Simulated scan of single mutants.
Amino acid sequence: MSIHLPASGPAVVAHGKGDLRIEDIPLTAPAPHEAVVEVAYGGICGSDLHYWLHGAAGESVLQEPMVLGHEIVGVVVQQAFDGTCPGVGTPVAVHPASPASGNVRYPEDRPNLSPGCTYLGSAARYPHTDGAFSRYANLPTRMLRPLPENLHLRTAALVEPASVAWHAVGRAGDVKGKTTLVIGSGPIGALVVAVLKRAGAARIVAVDMHDKPLEIARAVGADEVLKGDDADAIAAVDADVVIESSGSHFGLASAVKGATRGGKVVMVGLLPSGPQPVLISLAITRELELLGSFRFNNEIDEVIDALADGSLYIDPVVTHEFGLAQGLEAFEVAKNSAESGKVLLNFRP
């Protein structure tokens, strides 16, 4: 059983640098392994902003119009024709990755490192992989994660970025009882703070250049907050684990300085491509472990469980919500990191 679906629906489409449009797109027939999801909420990610502002996210350059969006939740309105679950009426979160095999080696238990991996709303390959900032989206059932009845869709809209944060903290190992430092308190940084809190970190210090992100970081569990230009105070933290989520070489320098000897620095903030200045001599003499963190794997299931049982508290991370008709205004607000946390689009009529 399914609802009657229209021939087209509104979507957020990036056409090029500075060219973002809310426009109708055709609703094509789903493949046998795809369910049709009526999207409820979508969170605006940094990559969405980059495609709008620069026509590219890193080395992924727009070559044709592309539907944005990979942080989405919704309800199944048409079950996949091959009979795979979930069924009609099931609220779902979405794991937006499609790992692919290739001739480049990577650990089998870490499909996020698959060289041919595609992601919803990504121009990394051509043809591009459309995202799901649309009223309806055809999605492979393997991407869909049924949500518990007690988990509100608005909260579940943060499942994807919270999984990124969960994976980053996991890269550091056991943080229980440790001093931790989070550089950059935007949405990912704030979610890292929330995950560290749940994981039992003894002391969580959050850093940012702006007051609003630090306010959010405190609300989700930071014990102390510091301004990003207070180099002496950051260095004095002497953290066992540092999570760098600013995505700048200045933030990475602060991370290295703020780490204790023999400590770990997890780099989840994606720096621009090309050479970057790094305090590598200090990292060497302190025997720091520098660890990359990229997207996530099955952590999404743990995140859903933690949100459902209330042990992961992330509500303050969402600061704004806009209807789809106000989508362009939503992107304007989202780009102002000094005044906003996570900005949600509400796709419901």
Rank of each mutant, 00 (worst) to 15 (best):
Q276S: 13
I280A: 13
E59K: 14
P86R: 09
T260N: 11
L191R: 03
A236R: 14
R105G: 01
K257V: 00
P86W: 06
S311N: 06
Y126D: 04
A137K: 11
P65M: 08
R145G: 00
V159W: 03
L226R: 09
P10A: 14
R135W: 12
L312G: 01
G121F: 08
E59A: 14
S47Y: 02
E287T: 14
I234G: 05
L312N: 01
I44M: 09
H249V: 06
A137C: 07
P127A: 07
I304P: 01
H128C: 13
P30Q: 10
V318L: 11
V159A: 10
K178T: 10
D24W: 07
G189L: 09
V268I: 14
M209I: 13
Q326E: 15
H4E: 13
D211E: 15
G323W: 05
H15K: 14
P91Q: 08
Y41P: 05
I183W: 00
G131W: 11
M267I: 15
P316G: 12
S163Q: 02
V241R: 02
P6Y: 11
G18V: 11
V76G: 06
V192N: 03
L270T: 10
G269M: 05
P148T: 08
S134Q: 14
P26Q: 11
S2F: 08
A132Y: 11
A201Q: 04
K212Y: 14
V242Q: 04
A222T: 06
